[in-house]
Design a protein around this nucleic acid. Structure first.
Length: 810
RNA sequence: GGGCGAGUGGCGGAAUUGGCAUACGCGUAUGGCUUAGAACCAUAUGCCGCAAGGCUUGGAGGUUCGAGUCCUCUCUCGCCCACCA
């Protein structure tokens, strides 16, 4: 037996494949195209994580499979470089982010090459290179010119160390009492801050409607819709001492049940009416206190509020002109709806809870159903009562009538609201794309002209945020001082973009990575887009997927891209846990170092294991024994070559199993079930390893089948079997066609028919082609076990499913 | 609280349209090879039972000749969102 030396084999073929760009994706090829995309990693200075490998291996195997099935496959890779991970790493190492990134991307690329990933490296991209972010900046200007990027005072998560953070970057602290940053674990609190935001809600309806054009998993579509959170209702204006307070409600039919108004602590009407509020000191104190509460504290605490003494709201329709108390309450969110609600305690759980606490009236305006008579509030539909001329109507009809009425009075209108908020787009940090805007001396804002793009990020040794939380670029006067289009002194915007700016459109750049005139040539985009299958993190199915769809639609409206949906199908991957079943982390000591595993067992074993471990979408623990078994499989296959001989006599059984293996693997891989495809490889291996000899033809077919999983070993054995003495790209196994199978040869003639009696498996009888139902019945009646289990009873009915099963009903 | 998903051996997991549940791998046991172990090879392995036989896909019902798969109820776990008016 020859010793299997994975290091030697891998180094040899790796060098040949990548120097010849074996996995080239060809623009405008005659072959049908497939664009298989896996979310790009953000290199953070360490070796590629084993979790990354799990995320990429199945998509990569799939891309190889498609290539062998005759597709022109684009399976690209790049680096999402901007953002905190690189900055934190650079700080720790005492180097610049630029230096950190250049080392990390090299390490990551090496790791991917070591894994044999079939990537067209001519299309590699890096979001932090000026040639790339020139286009990110250009796209931002498109958004800005269309009024979709604007400045707003926003309540933001504020971190002394990191500046402003997005919701997604903030986590509850370990003790549950506060908030910390996702990276670094620094304390975080709320603060108002002027920010650039993207008006994603402007596209909300299209983002919902166009889900009809794509083929995502229904659960992904639902998640997106929930995230957008579209709700129909009405805006109703209440007069509060001469000031208008607008509320949003989904239940205008309960308008006559309003017994109080509740407004958020940030509501502007408080400031306007402060002269009239007799307890203004108490109110201010409450507002001040609520500012420092974390969400969790607000949640566990009973709802609180303070009534604005001395001011009342007037009901817009009620003829009695009842005075309605107004309260400030921190359960009212500033940035949802209008920041004010009409309190209807009889028909809303939260309003009820609040009303009880503050002794507010509870007025029923919809009849409670019989079985709900004991409950204090009822949120369903029903007959409207106590509502003047609307009484007696069904609540759903009443809803429309009331909206019509307030519309005619100019006191409101039907309206739609979304949970989706404008997304904060600026960061007060160094390591990001500079926002390409200039503040003129008169305060107006002007875009940097296209010939002056990219606005390059200056290299700065001191790139950390100061204690004031302002962008480090603020300190760099040389950089941020400029002149405007009229030649007057001006100042650059010093905020930078968030990480997701570059990763919003990266998949477009793979299509035309070296273009200097446009982000990507429209004809090429037309050829490659949409992405056929997008693999990524389950946590990105809402935010990332939604924001990048938004970005793409804006580009479509601008005529930069030819279609309006970027991804046809989305597949989300599970997680790889540590051996102990917990999340891999340094503190648990269960982190797997892929470099060690690669050294020990080789890439083919690691790839096969990552495919075999389970379905792509699930989460499971790392099991070193499983990897070991796959390493054994690779070795066993390698040594099978000694069985190959021209005159090996193969049985019909071997032909059948080979055909069945091809059929099963083809179907499984089509459905991305790589784990069971590996089982098929094992089954076939177990069969042939006990044969006296294998025909060359069978052997080579088998090698093609294993090639997507074990590309190195397959190539080595293929070249050897074909006696190719010199490397030639076209002779690579990876450019061969996937084998076809003969359906007839797959069919296994069953000779033992399972026999059920009254639905329970009792026996088996031997059958042949000649048997029909009558001869079968004869056989059954002679079978000892059948006789025994019938116990002398008469057979009432025979259900015979040919070649499957027979069931006797006694 | 809301949404989504999942419950199958000791473990990871297989099971076209309902048709032999537990493929494949791990683990375990026994044997071989070894001074011994590791590694490797062979065989066995859902559970109870000496056996005949019985039981088994979270639980309870139902449809069906036949249910892991379809229907109703219920329990448990995971993920995401969460005072969203």
């Amino acid at each position: 037996m020859e010793n299997y030396n994975h290091r030697q084999i891998e180094d040899n073929w790796k060098e040949k494949w990548f120097s010849d760009n074996l996995y080239e994706a060809v623009d405008f090829s005659e072959k049908p195209k497939k664009y298989i995309l896996a979310e790009l990693p953000y290199p953070s200075g360490k070796f590629l994580h084993v979790g990354h490998m799990m995320r990429y291996t199945v998509p990569e195997i799939y891309s190889r499979f498609l290539r062998m099935r005759g597709y022109n496959v684009l399976f690209p890779m790049g680096w999402d470089c901007f953002g905190l991970p690189a900055e934190t790493f650079a700080q720790k190492e005492g180097i610049t982010p630029q230096e950190a990134i250049s080392k990390a991307t090299k390490d990551y690329k090496d790791a991917m090459m070591s894994m044999g990933y079939a990537i067209d490296w001519n299309r590699e991209i890096n979001t932090s290179e000026p040639a790339y972010y020139k286009w990110t900046q250009k796209m931002f200007l498109v958004l800005w010119k269309r009024g979709l990027a604007k400045q707003q005072e926003m309540p933001v998560w504020w971190c002394e160390e990191l500046g402003v953070l997005a919701d997604e970057e903030v986590l509850p602290s370990k003790d549950g009492k506060g908030k910390i940053s996702e990276r670094g674990g620094y304390p975080v609190k709320r603060k108002m801050y002027r920010q650039w935001v993207l008006d994603i809600p402007a596209y909300a309806d299209r983002l919902i409607d166009d889900l009809g054009k794509v083929d995502y998993e229904e659960s992904v579509k639902i998640a997106q819709k929930n995230w957008i959170g579209k709700k129909d209702g009405a805006l109703v204006t209440f007069n509060v001492e001469g000031e208008s307070v607008e509320v949003f409600t989904t239940r205008p039919d309960t308008l006559f049940g309003v017994t109080f108004l509740a407004i958020s602590p940030q509501h502007p009407v408080i400031e306007k009416l402060k002269e009239k509020i007799s307890n203004i000191n108490d109110v201010s104190e409450y507002i001040e206190k609520s500012k420092n509460l974390t969400d969790l504290e607000k949640q566990t605490k009973i709802k609180t509020g303070v009534q604005l003494i001395g001011v009342y709201a007037r009901h817009p329709l009620n003829s009695q002109m009842t005075k309605i108390p107004v309260l400030v309450a921190d359960y009212i969110l500033t940035d949802y709806g209008t920041g004010a609600i009409m309190g209807v305690p009889a028909h809303d759980e939260r309003d009820y809870e609040f009303a009880v606490k503050y002794n507010l009236e509870v007025k029923k305006v919809i009849e409670f159903p019989q079985d709900k008579n004991d409950t204090p509030y009822f949120t369903g539909e029903g007959v409207v009562i106590n509502s003047e001329e609307y009484s007696g109507q069904n609540s759903q009809v009443c809803r429309q009538d009331i909206v019509k009425k307030i519309e005619s009075l100019g006191l409101g209108k039907g309206a739609t609201t979304y949970k989706l908020r404008p997304q904060i787009f600026s960061r007060q940090r160094y390591w990001g794309e500079p926002i390409p805007l200039i503040y003129k001396h008169d305060g107006n804002i002007e875009a940097v002209t296209e010939e002056n793009l990219p606005v390059e990020l200056p290299v700065m040794k001191d790139f950390l945020v100061g204690k004031d939380g302002k962008s480090p670029l603020e300190k760099n006067m040389e950089w941020n001082t400029t002149i405007d289009s009229e030649g007057n002194p001006a100042k650059r915007e010093t905020d930078t973009m968030p990480t997701w700016a570059g990763s919003n459109w990266y998949y477009m750049r793979y299509i035309d990575p070296h273009n200097t005139v446009t982000p990507a040539d429209v004809a090429k985009l037309k050829y490659w887009l949409p992405v056929d299958l997008y693999f990524g993190d389950a946590g990105h199915t809402t935010a990332h997927l939604l924001y990048s769809r938004f970005w793409f639609k804006v580009l479509y409206d601008e005529g930069i891209v030819p279609i309006d949906e970027p991804y046809m199908y989305r597949m989300s991957g599970g997680m790889l846990l540590g051996e102990d079943g917990g999340k891999m982390s340094k503190s648990r000591g269960n982190v797997v170092n892929p470099k060690d595993e690669l050294e020990k067992h080789g890439a083919d074993a690691l790839r096969t294991y990552l495919a075999f471990i389970g379905p792509y979408e699930d989460t499971y623990p790392w099991n070193p024994k499983g990897l070991h078994a796959c390493a054994k499989l690779v070795r066993t296959i390698y040594n099978l070559k000694t069985l190959v001989s021209e005159k090996a006599d193969e049985s019909a059984e071997t032909t059948r199993i080979l055909n069945k293996t091809i059929k099963n693997m083809t179907e499984m891989m089509d459905n991305l079930k790589m784990n069971t495809a590996v089982s098929e490889i094992m089954i076939f291996t177990n069969h042939i390893k006990n044969l006296a000899g294998i025909k060359k033809e069978t052997w080579e077919t088998f090698l093609v089948l294993i090639a997507p999983f074990m590309p190195f070993t397959a190539e080595e054995l293929w070249q050897e079997s074909n006696n190719y003495s010199k490397w030639q790209k076209t002779n690579s196994i990876h450019l061969q066609m996937w084998p076809k199978y003969n359906e007839e040869l797959v069919i296994e003639k069953i000779t033992e028919l399972p026999v059920q009696i009254n639905g329970k498996l009792r026996s088996e009888v031997t059958i042949s082609d000649k048997d029909n139902e009558d001869t079968l019945k004869q056989k059954l009646l002679q079978d000892e076990r059948v006789i025994k289990h019938l116990g002398g009873k008469e057979i009432k009915k025979i259900i015979y499913v040919k070649d499957k099963i027979v069931n006797l009903i006694a």
